[in-house]
Design a protein around this nucleic acid. Sequence first.
DNA 1: CTCTAGATCTAT
DNA 2: TAGATCTAGAGG
Length: 179
Amino acid sequence: MHDPVRFLARPAPRVAPELLGWRLAIGPHVARITETEAYHGERDRACHASKGRTPRSAGLYARAGTLYVYLCYGMHWMLNLVCDDVDVPSAVLIRSIELPGIDPRASNGPGKVAKLLGLHRSHNGQHLDHGDLHLLPPLVPVKRRRRGPRVGVAYAGPGWAEKPWRWWEDGFPVVANRL
DNA sequence: CTCTAGATCTAT
DNA sequence: TAGATCTAGAGG
């Protein structure tokens, strides 16, 4: 099952751990995904769809393989790969990547990821099948998978803030959670 | 219309 | 630990 879109067409919490090791290709870059985070359903208080379908969250309800790219804190673009079926808001945030010749500490954070890959507003709503960003199956398998709570979602409250929906490859630098 | 908080990062 | 920088979404 190496068709990227079909691979993504499942709930984000199931896709996110398996997405480690897959590669993002755009222009001259081929980045290996080393950290992911899942957001799923309107009940997930950390998900942008927690307030229902709005102009911003609409993309989360699109078909698997759609890109959900949004501006965070007024200065960082976040790349999400939409998952699951149409009308089910579900997506995986790409938190860290590995790029040839680049220090892993320079590519460990969603803001850095988008910046390094040159992603911004115009990529929002694009689809993997028709845009300039492509998802390729793993070449180098993931050695060991680690799991923990999502970052920066304390506002989501009990039950959602601590949900261990973040995964990363052991050995790669991870951004510590803030309290 | 106004206001606030935010899926961050960097420098201090 | 604070400041940069901006916009979606809620409330009036």
